[in-house]
Design a protein around this nucleic acid. Structure first.
Lengths: 236, 236
DNA sequence: CGGTACGTTGAGTCATATCAACCATAGTGG
DNA sequence: CCACTATGGTTGATATGACTCAACGTACCG
């Protein structure tokens, strides 16, 4: 690991690179942030926070990927969303002043900054543009949640799996060989779609037979995006 | 209908009575609101706004009940939430500056105030407490949406129906004979739970056989709340 | 009195969950 | 270095919850 990979990122530079919401802060606010934040590193599998816990701050992702999930019946996970560089997590609990309604676990080794609640609250009070941007973010996520509710309630597992694959493509992109740039276990895929692991496996291999995808362990290669779109019924 | 039922409500009084978020506004802001708002009345079945449309303002409910829903495959509704006195709807689209992601339709005749977008945005800019309260609201709704996603993905229709009944009890209450204070068609119930109308009918009559509820057309009498809680698995 | 919307019930079907067995891989410790 | 174990992936057989389709009942309304 190179030296610069270990150095603590500066928020202004980081905000600029990742396009995080912090770009709406003033010079002074950024300085305060740089001073108050705490830099942390986590490895795959580590937990950032647990559902039900009181949270004293929120996290801004500098690198890596985190899954945000709820634990349902029999401990089965429901993945709510992923966080990647530039995203913030746990801000919901901080702002609504409720206990965490989700847990967060590392999917890909990551480097994050932990920022105390009071800082976020003070920015909301002092910087109305920033407050507005946060509102936009929360409202946008709310819209996405509503769509997801409708999908889970109305679409088949097959349709949802196709849709999730496309969503992952949109969020994490493909490399030059069309491999999906995020690697998930079958169980994790099932926990997004809201189905059993075995169902995901069976449907994926159907997609493979239909030349829609190619499978190399956890690496998924997208061969026919249009085909997946058709299956997923994205346009109602 | 009595005279006072037709008169336009004053926001300060209304905010106080319904506990709406407007109680966080200053005297001047309330006055502006009173001046700019537009009072409207709607009857059961009328549409306030449609999914996909650009919205020029949001609504504050003074009386009545409204369902907020998305239209999915084959035009099937998915009810996202209900709005009752004191609630605001369409604020999501206004704040995120996106087209409406839901439609709103009247369940019980209602009286609402329509408030232009700019007013809301200006309050967010000028009144940081109000902005913070809005953030709390949005974040709270986000938490509820996350729970709902997990429920739909993991619970059976039977569990969800019991849960929804309890949720309606919590939101709309029971009268002195334990009748649920909101009246929905079987289809509407199905569109909350995310199932087929026939399934709701069958399960409701099972609940009836099990002496959990009593059915008189659309009036549902709750006989055994504990029993419903047990079925719904509310505590994971 | 016919029409329309809603409610109910039965029968048949199918998608998906569940259960069980098995394989592959990698990490661990003696 | 090899058995041991844990984790994840795959496949098959079976069970069943829930949907669909269809018929019919009910109630209100102009």
């Amino acid at each position: 690991m190179k030296q610069q990979d270990i150095s603590i990122p500066f928020c202004d530079k980081c905000a600029f690179e990742t396009g995080s919401l912090f770009k709406y802060l003033t010079r002074e606010e950024i300085d305060l942030l740089n001073f108050e934040k705490e830099f942390r590193q986590y490895k795959r599998g580590e937990i950032l926070y647990n559902e039900g816990s009181r949270i004293s701050g929120f996290y801004c992702i500098h690198s890596g990927i985190i899954k945000v999930f709820k634990t349902g019946l029999d401990g089965k996970e429901q993945i709510i969303r992923f966080a990647k560089p530039g995203d913030i997590i746990a801000y919901r609990s901080v702002l609504s002043n409720e206990v965490a309604c989700t847990s967060a676990k590392v999917i890909e080794d990551c480097r994050v900054c932990f920022i105390p609640s009071e800082i976020l609250i003070s920015f909301v009070k002092s910087n109305s543009s920033y407050a507005h941007e946060l509102l936009k973010l929360a409202c946008h996520e709310l819209g996405e949640a509503n769509s997801f509710i409708t999908d889970i309630a109305q679409k088949t597992v097959r349709e949802r799996l196709a849709e999730i694959l496309l969503l992952l493509v949109a969020d994490f992109g493909l490399d030059d060989q069309n491999y999906l740039q995020i690697s998930l276990t079958r169980e994790e895929l099932a926990n997004i779609v809201g189905t059993a692991t075995e169902s995901v496996i069976r449907l994926l291999s159907e997609f493979k037979s239909d030349k829609l995808v190619e499978l190399n362990g956890r690496k998924i290669r997208i061969l026919n995006k249009k085909g997946l779109e058709k299956i997923s019924n994205v346009f109602n």
